[in-house]
């Protein structure tokens, strides 16, 4: 998997590159608009991470250029400018996702995977983990081909874990992803434990081959057990 990282901030570029390489991607990076243009013209990538605020041009122009070249690379916009206009403009120009800075690297990884999955499966959006199969459109969860009943929060938690398998999941980040931005002012996370406990129980009852492991003081880790 080859990824082009267009980011002008050296420290950020370096850390994202290091992280992606750890995740076994091949990473090329470009620091300027012109650099990025030359790279997309000369090479093919599986995914482009595009910062739209570049010193010598707007990243959105790279998107336009890709279109004129008739290339269909997956593009995820990473931007410090979390404005609705840019988001809409980016997605209209053919970007696949929009990730406002600052973001968690695990989140970036999940988005990259999701983009790949979508392009690979030609719109078929089943996510599989062990013997679990999730349909994100209908919110249906099948274990061994048998449907299990989850409430909305349980489904959201499972979906979050499945798209971040193997990663350490911080309980704050999980709470924010499932309950929204306002969760930061909540002092106790007891309600997460309760929801995760219920989810675990349902998964165990259905004999799912996955495990939500608690990491003391930090959060969780989603592990797929070999059958």
């Amino acid at each position: 998997m080859k990824i082009l990282l267009v980011e002008d901030e050296p420290a950020l570029r370096e850390i994202i590159r290091k992280f992606l390489e750890k995740e076994h991607y091949i990473v090329e990076s470009a620091a300027t608009f012109n650099d990025a243009l030359i790279k997309v013209e000369d090479y093919d990538y599986d995914c482009i991470l595009l910062d739209i605020m570049l010193p010598d041009g707007n990243g959105l122009a790279v998107l336009k250029h890709l279109k004129t070249l008739h290339k269909h690379e997956n593009v995820i916009i990473i931007s410090a400018k979390d404005s609705l206009d840019d988001r809409v403009a980016g997605l209209e120009l053919g970007a696949d996702d929009y990730l406002p800075k600052p973001f968690h690297l695990a989140e970036l990884n999940a988005r990259i995977k999701s983009v790949f999955r979508r392009s690979r499966m030609n719109g078929e959006l089943f996510i599989e983990a062990g013997n679990i199969r999730i349909n994100p459109d209908s919110h249906e969860v099948l274990v061994n081909g048998k449907s299990i009943e989850l409430n909305r929060k349980e489904y959201d938690i499972l979906h979050y874990f499945v798209t971040r398998r193997g990663d350490l999941v911080d309980k704050n980040t999980l709470a924010e992803a499932v309950w929204g931005d306002y969760i930061d002012q909540v002092d106790s996370f007891d309600f997460i434990y309760a929801q995760v406990k219920n989810l675990r129980k349902k998964l165990t009852e259905a004999a799912a081959s996955v495990e939500i492991k608690a990491v003391y003081g930090f959060g969780y880790k989603f592990i797929i057990n070999e059958l």
């Binding site: 994202i16 410090a80 600052p102 690297l105 350490l168």
Partner: peptide
Amino acid sequence: SHELQTPLAICQNKLEMLLY
């Protein structure tokens, strides 16, 4: 606050890398 975004992102991501 806009200028703070990038340094904050770097701190956040470095810490995240540390976790691995």
